[in-house]
């Protein structure tokens, strides 16, 4: 079936500006999963600018499948009840540019690479940036991934999180410059 032509022009995006915290902040927004629940992992990183300085006024959103690979359709992302897994979270960077989420490792269909969909917003960023945060654990699936296999090794590395010895995930986002994160359009 063919996609019909678009009839409306898209509303353009704008920066979130400096004062988004009281507008888009809410209780336990970075706790996609309860911190002390079995299977919860910490996903953390730092947002950097073009000279390697941390960005203290950014925020990151993630949306991820549950551990079985199924995309959650449940409500409750804004009213956390500590047991419903909605897959969505939002984290502000702190004064050191650091963000963190408590969440679950997303699952994937067999042979496919698992990732979080992620969006970055910041003062000084005229529009949002889409990216992905892949789990590093399944090397064969990563090698076969349609996006990653198209990228040079340095670029590919910007999309794959690092698994730390304690099981947590570490993933920095570089808006500009050396090791600049690969951002996506669809």
């Amino acid at each position: 079936m063919a996609v019909p032509p678009r009839t409306l022009r898209a509303t353009p995006g704008q920066t979130v500006g400096p004062f988004f915290a009281y507008g888009v902040g809410y209780d336990r927004m970075h706790q996609v999963a309860h911190p002390h629940a079995p299977g919860t992992v910490l996903l953390g990183g730092t947002v950097y600018d073009g000279v390697g300085a941390p960005v203290p006024d950014a925020f990151v959103e993630i949306f991820g499948a549950d551990a079985d690979g199924v995309v959650p359709r449940r409500r409750g992302s804004f009213r956390r009840d500590d047991h419903t897994f909605t897959g969505f979270g939002r984290a502000f960077t702190n004064d050191d540019g650091h963000f963190e989420f408590f969440t679950r490792d997303p699952g994937a269909r067999p042979g496919r690479a698992a990732f979080f969909a992620a969006i970055v917003y910041a003062r000084g960023l005229p529009d949002r940036l889409h990216t992905r945060i892949y789990l590093p654990d399944d090397a064969a699936a990563l090698a076969a991934d349609p996006l990653l296999r198209d990228l040079a090794a340095d670029d590919r590395a910007t999309l794959v999180a690092e698994r730390m010895p304690d099981g947590s995930l570490r993933h920095d986002i570089r808006l500009q410059g050396e090791k600049e994160t690969v951002f996506l359009v669809f």
Binding site: R123, G124, P126, F186
Partner: peptide
Amino acid sequence: SILRHPTKSPKLV
């Protein structure tokens, strides 16, 4: 925005 905008073209996926 000078130090915060990406310099590479976004990847179409």
